[in-house]
Amino acid sequence: MKRKIIIGSMIAALAIPALAIAATDGPHKGHHKGDIFERLDTNKDGEISFEEMTVRSTERFSRLDKDGNGTISVEEMTVKKKEFFDKLDKDGNGSISKEEARAFHDMKREMRKERHASRMLEILDIDKDGVVTKEEFAAASDKRFEAADGNKDGVLSAEELQNMGPKKHGMKKG
C-alpha cells in the first residue's frame, strides 16, 4: 500500500508540470521558452492532444522507471535521489557543502542563460547566419511594436503596453 501511495504521488508530481504549462498558455503567459502552444502542438495540427500534453511527464516517468516495468519503485526513486546527490557532492565526501550547492546553482543558471541566448539567436537571426545584425534586431523590435499597437495609430497607449503582458521586455517567436 505504501508503495502505491508513493508511486501515485510520483505520477501526480510528474503530471503537474504539464498541467502548469497548459495553464500558462493564456493572456498572461510566463516569460520562458517561447510560445507554449507551439511547443506542445508537436504534430502542428493546431490542436493539442492528451498525448502531446503528457509527453514530457511520460518521458520523465520513463527515465525514473529504470527496469521498464511501468512502475516506479522506492528503490528506483532512491537510485535517482542518490544520482542527484552525487552530482552535487563534487568531492565525494558524502555531504554537500555550501560551496558545492552554490556551484551547482551557478552551473544551472549558466545553462539557463545559454539556452536563453540560443533561443534569442534562433528568434532574432532572420537569415540564420549565426549573428544578429542591427537590422535584424530592429526588425524584431518593429514587429513587436506593430503587434502591440492594437489600433494601429503608431503609438502605444498604457493599455496596449499592459496588453503586451510579461513578454514586454523580451522577444517571442512568431
Rank of each mutant, 00 (worst) to 15 (best):
I36K: 12
H116D: 15
L64F: 13
T24F: 10
F85L: 04
L19F: 10
E160Y: 01
S118K: 15
R56T: 04
A22F: 05
V132M: 03
K168Q: 14
F145M: 10
Q162N: 14
N163M: 04
F137K: 13
A22W: 07
E59P: 00
E83Q: 14
L124S: 08
L121D: 06
T42A: 15
L64M: 11
R60W: 02
E122C: 00
D86R: 05
R144P: 05
K29A: 11
S57I: 01
K66T: 13
S157A: 02
E100N: 03
E83T: 03
R144T: 07
A15M: 14
K98Y: 06
E159K: 14
H169A: 14
K44Q: 10
M10Y: 07
I7Q: 12
S118N: 15
A20D: 09
I7K: 14
S73K: 06
E100C: 01
K128P: 00
I6V: 15
A139C: 02
M120L: 11
F61H: 06
M107D: 15
S157H: 06
K168M: 07
D91W: 02
K108Y: 06
N163S: 09
H31S: 13
A12I: 14
D45L: 01
E146W: 08
F50K: 06
M111I: 07
S118F: 11
N43S: 01
I126A: 15
I96H: 05
S118D: 15
F85R: 04
E59M: 02
D127N: 15
A23I: 05
E47W: 05
T71A: 12
H32R: 05
D35E: 11
T71I: 08
V132L: 09
E76V: 06
A101E: 12
L40Q: 05
E38H: 10
K128W: 04
E83K: 09
F85W: 11
T42V: 08
K173W: 05
F84Q: 13
M1K: 10
R112S: 14
M53A: 13
R144S: 11
R102K: 15
M171R: 11
S141W: 03
T71Q: 05
D67N: 15
F84D: 03
L124C: 09
N69W: 10
G34W: 00
A18H: 13
D67W: 00
E59H: 12
D106E: 13
V55S: 12
I21Y: 07
A140K: 12
D125N: 11
S95P: 00
R112A: 10
I16F: 10
K82T: 13
K152Y: 09
A23D: 09
K167Q: 13
G94F: 00
R112E: 14
M1H: 09
E146Q: 14
G130F: 03
A147N: 10
S57M: 03
V79A: 08
S73G: 12
